[in-house]
């Protein structure tokens, strides 16, 4: 029943941008998991059909209301050959499942290589925070990058000639989180005090969605993941922009001064300014991001103004308080933030 529903649904959702189905894999790793999944579906499905079939047949064939019963049926105490047979059958199935599981396990869990020129490989540190994602871009194709961004991962797309994988090093700044972009890979937890690793690679450009999969406190539900898979050219352009320090436009000098004078800088960083906080998302290129608040609202001048005024109605319980800014200060700060492209 589930399988039928699943098929119907796949047809409906496939191709839509909100699709997060594990049965619409967009990467080799996710593909091999689907292969394993289908195999286990078939095996367990066969067991299901046979056992439920015998059950229903027995129920239908041997049912007899009490009033119609006379005497007792023959008593059968057991049978060694039968017991051996139905111990052996599941044992064989288990053996088969162990083999395919092992194969997929070795397929999916990759050890992280060292960065070197010409490898077309991206290395990013991911740090889970309550309730947002910090991305530290380490290196790409052997080039050291060393910039920080938040909530929206950009990675290059692979093509038939070149693989452009990204290796994520997963850590947590506070509690346990879990990195899950279903169409790209299975989830890997971010556990404080441990370092985990995950490889993503896809030939499908565009946006992939996911979200935190380990309960991490009040706003666990709103800790969304966005992975932008760019063409190599787009990706290089994005890298070039992100590597730069923040723009300094004289038109928003007032706002910049206000921003730096407020407690914003205790938590947020803007490269090239004295703002070096590390508790909250890096804002250096805030306007290059499509969303705010780890993916729950679109990033527009209006939503940004709402967010700066008071984030709590938008993401209740989030760690950024309302600062009670005057309307003018708030406008100045928002105008400054809007300049951070």
């Amino acid at each position: 029943m589930d399988v039928i529903g699943q098929c119907a649904l796949l047809a409906a959702v496939r191709g839509s941008p909100g699709n997060m189905s594990i049965f619409a894999p967009a990467s080799p790793g996710a593909h091999s998991i689907v292969d394993l999944a289908i195999l286990t579906f078939v095996v367990t499905g066969l067991i299901f059909v046979v056992v439920e079939g015998v059950l229903l047949y027995s129920v239908w064939r041997f049912r007899q209301p009490r009033v119609e019963q006379t005497g007792e049926p023959p008593q059968v105490y057991g049978s060694m050959p039968i017991e051996v047979a139905w111990t052996a059958a599941p044992t064989l199935i288990v053996f088969f499942l162990v083999l395919v599981t092992t194969r997929t396990l070795w397929d999916v869990e990759k050890t992280q290589p060292k960065s070197k020129p010409g490898d077309n490989t991206l290395f990013v540190n991911v740090i889970g925070h309550q309730w947002w994602w910090e991305y530290v871009y380490e290196s790409y194709d052997g080039r050291i990058l060393g910039f920080v961004t938040a909530n929206e991962l950009h990675m290059p797309v692979s093509d038939d000639d070149t693989m452009r994988p990204v290796y994520l090093t997963l850590k947590s700044a506070d509690v346990c989180h879990s990195y899950w972009v279903p169409r790209l890979a299975g989830k890997v937890d971010l556990i404080p005090g441990r370092v985990n690793s995950l490889m993503l690679e896809t030939k499908e450009p565009g946006l992939q969605l996911g979200q935190c999969a380990e309960f991490c406190g009040a706003q666990h539900a709103n800790m969304l993941l966005r992975v932008n898979v760019d063409t190599p050219e787009e990706f290089e352009r994005w890298l070039a922009n992100e590597s730069k320090a923040a723009l300094e436009e004289s038109a928003v000098a007032d706002g910049r001064a206000k921003f730096l004078a407020q407690s914003c800088v205790n938590c947020h960083a803007v490269r090239g300014t004295p703002a070096r906080g590390t508790y909250a998302p890096d804002l250096t290129h805030l306007m290059s991001r499509q969303t705010l608040a780890s993916g729950i609202i679109e990033n527009t001048p209006e939503t940004l103004a709402d967010w700066v005024r008071d984030p709590q109605p938008i993401k209740p319980g989030c760690l950024m308080p309302a600062f009670g800014l005057t309307e003018r200060d708030q406008q100045l700060i928002v105008r400054y933030l809007l300049s951070l492209r």
């Binding site: 499942l97 999916v108 879990s178």
Partner: peptide, 15 residues
């Protein structure tokens, strides 16, 4: 059994 197949569980766990 599906959840026991570790790689499948990478997807299914905590879902």
């Amino acid at each position: 059994i599906m959840l026991g197949a570790a790689p499948f569980d990478f997807q299914l766990s905590d879902s």
